[in-house]
Simulated scan of single mutants.
Amino acid sequence: MSAQFAIPIEVETFYVENQSDAAAERFVFAYTITIRNQSEQKVKLLRRYWSITDANGKHSEVYGDGVIGEQPELPPGTSYTYTSGAVLETPVGTMQGHYEMTAASGESFHAQIPVFRLAIPNILN
Rank of each mutant, 00 (worst) to 15 (best):
E40T: 14
E40Q: 13
E40N: 11
Q41A: 10
Q41P: 12
Q41E: 15
Q41F: 05
Q41K: 11
Q41Y: 06
Q41S: 14
K42W: 00
K42T: 13
K42H: 01
K42D: 05
K42C: 05
K42L: 03
K42F: 00
V43F: 11
V43S: 02
V43K: 03
V43E: 03
V43M: 10
K44T: 13
K44Q: 15
K44S: 09
L45F: 03
L45S: 04
L46E: 12
L46R: 12
L46S: 10
L46N: 13
R47G: 02
R47E: 13
R47N: 15
R47L: 08
R48W: 04
R48K: 12
R48E: 07
R48F: 05
Y49I: 06
W50I: 01
W50T: 01
S51F: 14
S51V: 06
I52L: 12
I52F: 09
T53V: 14
T53F: 06
T53I: 12
T53P: 02
T53E: 15
T53H: 03
T53M: 14
D54L: 07
D54W: 08
D54G: 02
D54C: 03
A55R: 07
A55V: 02
A55L: 11
A55G: 04
A55M: 11
N56P: 00
N56F: 00
N56V: 00
N56G: 05
G57I: 07
G57V: 04
G57S: 07
K58G: 00
H59E: 06
H59D: 03
H59G: 02
H59T: 11
H59M: 10
H59N: 08
S60D: 10
S60R: 15
S60K: 15
S60A: 10
S60C: 10
E61Q: 13
V62Q: 15
V62L: 13
V62P: 02
V62S: 13
Y63G: 10
Y63I: 14
G64R: 10
G64C: 09
G64D: 08
G64W: 08
G64Y: 07
G64V: 11
G64K: 08
G64S: 09
D65A: 11
D65S: 09
D65N: 12
G66V: 06
G66R: 02
V67P: 00
V67W: 01
V67M: 05
V67F: 04
V67E: 06
V67H: 04
V67T: 07
I68T: 09
I68Y: 01
I68V: 14
I68S: 04
G69C: 01
G69E: 00
G69A: 00
G69H: 01
G69P: 01
E70H: 06
E70K: 07
E70N: 12
E70C: 04
Q71R: 13
P72Q: 01
P72E: 00
E73C: 02
E73I: 03
E73D: 02
E73G: 02
E73Q: 11
L74V: 08
L74C: 09
L74E: 02
L74T: 05
